[in-house]
Design a protein around this nucleic acid. Structure first.
Lengths: 225, 225
DNA sequence: TGCAAACTTGCACTTAGTGTAATCATGTGA
DNA sequence: TCACATGATTACACTAAGTGCAAGTTTGCA
């Protein structure tokens, strides 16, 4: 009666845990939508997810952590793309390619919603920050692994950390500007704006931010501000 | 009997508040030194500062916030330097000059100590992140004010945010590498290492991170790793 | 001096987060 | 199929964070 058709057998236990975890996140997001940040408790989430308060804390350390799964999913997607890039490629180019993936509708949609719901709430903003920082560390790790594969190359810790941090900052800047301009609009036009913002931000980074003060449009569509 | 010898008269009230605020921060730091992160409560801090628990919360919203005054002081110093730079100067150059100030012994000493005491404690690390982020926003604001003074110039929001974030990331990267290399060592030699790291990080940024993987020393002292 | 505004404090209350032990579900071997 | 070990859920109790409120205290000002 057991389902052993697949190789990497996810046991009943693992499935249950994953389902519970998802149920908690979903419940938290639903409450965020319905009541707004700060207007519901862990107990509310637990009730909505059909579990006890104590079990909630077995899965997440706080309300923010439960909500952070959205951001983490978003950033993990980019990270995954980064890891798929060829090892010979310059890190900056790999990062550029990875960031491009963020402009995908399916990927950015939950993030866009969370962003609108989160605005002006300090504790949620803090956990967002933490997620971006975690992603930075992961990029550093991935880059180190990549370099470790190449026999002759040494790694400059400072170069790597400064680069990873800057790339993430550019991604964050692009997202911020996009939200400010387009809100949670997910239309093709809006997404192409986001794509362009990501390209421009990384472009500035690659060019060493050489233009002191930009008088007008560097590439395309930059009005409505 | 009142002290009205100075112009911008700080009233008795203001002085008391400032003193209390400082007493709380000091007490918190002393407890952090003595007991380690997570091993003391707000009540302990209040008792050590000679105030009630309730009053603590009139000044700070949490233990972390009380400790954050160290980081904020550190970053405010850089920010202040940034604001003092001439308006015609490229922002990147102003930022470089401001970051250099962080290698000053008096400025960096409390930060270095906090860093060693803070390591491995997630909630303190989070409030550090918040402080760096706050500094980024302040830089953006300062840069906007600067541009507003120059009549003809428009500002590119993306350029500004990406640049500010990247500069801060470089500062953070330099600090991280410095701590990893030198710990809380504040000797002139150690400080010159920090200064060099800050220069190199901003150098990488200004050069668009063009070197794919750095085989050896870009400027000076880069061994011991 | 006396009043108003600002600051401090004690108290009560809600909620977060954790340790513990009992209970329930799942996987495993005979 | 049963028994048993292991892992997950839960109730309960407890500490501590954070907040609202109202009474008391200090400071500023006329």
């Amino acid at each position: 009666m057991t389902d052993d058709s697949t190789a990497a057998a996810p046991s009943r236990r693992e499935l249950n845990k994953a389902a519970t975890r998802q149920a908690i996140s979903d419940a938290a997001l639903k409450l965020l939508r319905g009541k707004g940040p700060g207007n519901f408790t862990v107990e509310d989430i637990a009730a909505a997810a059909g579990i006890s308060r104590r079990t909630f804390f077995n899965y997440f350390s706080s309300t923010e952590a439960a909500l952070a799964s959205v951001t983490n999913g978003f950033l993990d997607h980019a990270l995954q793309q980064f890891r798929l890039r060829p090892a010979e490629e310059p890190i900056l180019e790999s990062a550029r390619a990875a960031l491009m993936e963020l402009a995908d509708p399916m990927t950015v949609a939950p993030m866009a919603e969370l962003f609108t719901l989160t605005q002006q709430n300090s504790s949620l903003v803090r956990s967002e920050l933490e997620a971006w920082d975690h992603c930075t560390e992961q990029i550093i790790l991935a880059a180190k692994e990549r370099v470790a594969k190449t026999p002759g190359a040494a790694i400059d810790e400072l170069y790597l950390r400064a680069l990873a941090g800057s790339v993430i900052s550019c991604g964050k800047a692009a997202m911020d500007v996009w939200f400010a301009q387009c809100g949670a609009d997910l239309s093709p036009a809006s997404l192409s704006v986001l794509r362009q913002l990501l390209i421009d931000a990384i472009g500035h980074l690659g060019a060493g931010f050489d233009s002191p003060a930009r008088p007008s449009s560097p590439t395309l569509l930059k009005d409505r501000f």
